[in-house]
């Protein structure tokens, strides 16, 4: 196995493009190394992106926030402006694994690992986040919800690398929240995750995005659920309708963590709670 530490994103993409065997990007390694040790992967090339300056650091720009693909989750929690603006995204990042895992793992890696149960992916989808994708020839900016295709598969070419995640700037009276359900409080995989992001105008929900995790082959945006609360003050009837839309959007598996019926039910319950938290964070009073 070869190990490379390119210093630009384009060089990282070129290494992937030139490799004839199996090549993987190494960000935090908290998924990749576990799979290598389990014998599920046998890479010929690992491309460690931690030395790429464009992939390090969190920048606040006029457009919002740019989070480098090599930034560990713990740094999201330490960035005060990010935490104030996108508390739901940050709380999702702070739910990955444990402190030890958060010191290494990245949200770009969480996205590219393409697990249906990834914690930050629903929160990023709800936030309207975009990924900066760089190939040897061109770069493109893609909405996060367009990238996961199914468990372990991404809509990325072999030579494409995610360089950064972009979070938009947002108007006042906005809030987001992410909740997940797991059997224990740490170091487990979501049975269901629910993210809600909304903006209010005089206490009425003006825009909303709702996404679910672990209830379908990929994390999913649920526009019907968002429509159910837009134009409301998040009254019980609106919440009821939203929860039903969430449950209807589920297409989960049965496994040791939860049955299909259980996940479908919990998706509605969690989305409802997350919506109430987001509403309160946006300054709304129910």
């Amino acid at each position: 196995m070869r190990y490379e530490t390119p210093e630009t994103t384009r060089d990282a993409a070129a290494l992937l493009a030139a490799e004839k065997g199996e090549a993987y990007i190494l960000a935090g390694g908290t998924d990749l190394l576990v799979r290598m040790k389990a014998g599920l992967l046998e890479p010929d090339l690992l491309v460690d992106i931690k030395q790429v300056p464009a992939m390090n650091g969190i920048q606040q720009t006029a457009a919002g926030f740019r989070i480098g693909a090599a930034v560990p989750a713990v740094e999201l929690g330490e960035h005060r402006a990010l935490g104030r603006t996108w508390p739901g995204v940050v709380e999702a990042a702070k739910l990955i694994g444990s402190d030890q895992v958060q010191g290494r793992c990245t949200i770009a890696g969480n996205l590219c690992n393409a697990s249906p149960a990834a914690d930050t992916v629903p929160a990023l989808m709800a936030a309207g986040a975009k990924a900066v994708v760089v190939g040897p020839e061109r770069r493109r900016t893609v909405p996060v919800e367009k990238l996961p295709r199914g468990p372990g598969t991404m809509a990325l070419a072999k030579s494409e690398v995610v360089e950064a995640i972009l979070l938009p700037q947002r108007p006042a009276k906005s809030g987001d929240a992410y909740l997940r359900f797991i059997p224990r409080t740490e170091m487990d995989i979501a049975v269901v995750g629910a993210a809600v992001n909304l903006t209010l105008e005089r206490g009425v929900v003006k825009t909303a995005r709702i996404a679910l995790g672990a209830v379908a082959p990929t994390a999913v945006l649920v526009p019907r659920a968002a429509r159910a609360i837009i134009g409301t003050r998040l009254d019980d009837a609106a919440l009821e309708k939203m929860a039903a839309a969430c449950s209807a959007a589920c297409n989960p598996i049965d496994d040791k963590r939860g049955t299909i019926a259980y996940r479908v039910k919990v998706a509605g319950v969690l989305a409802r709670r997350a919506a109430c938290i987001a509403y309160e964070r946006a300054g709304g009073k129910r």
């Binding site: 390694g29 190394l33 290494r104």
Partner: peptide, 18 residues
């Protein structure tokens, strides 16, 4: 568990080259 550059890591999930 050890610390690497002041941050906790699980050293079974980190390459020595890192």
């Amino acid at each position: 568990t050890v610390t690497l550059n002041g941050r906790l890591v699980k050293s079974c999930t980190c390459l020595a080259v890192q």
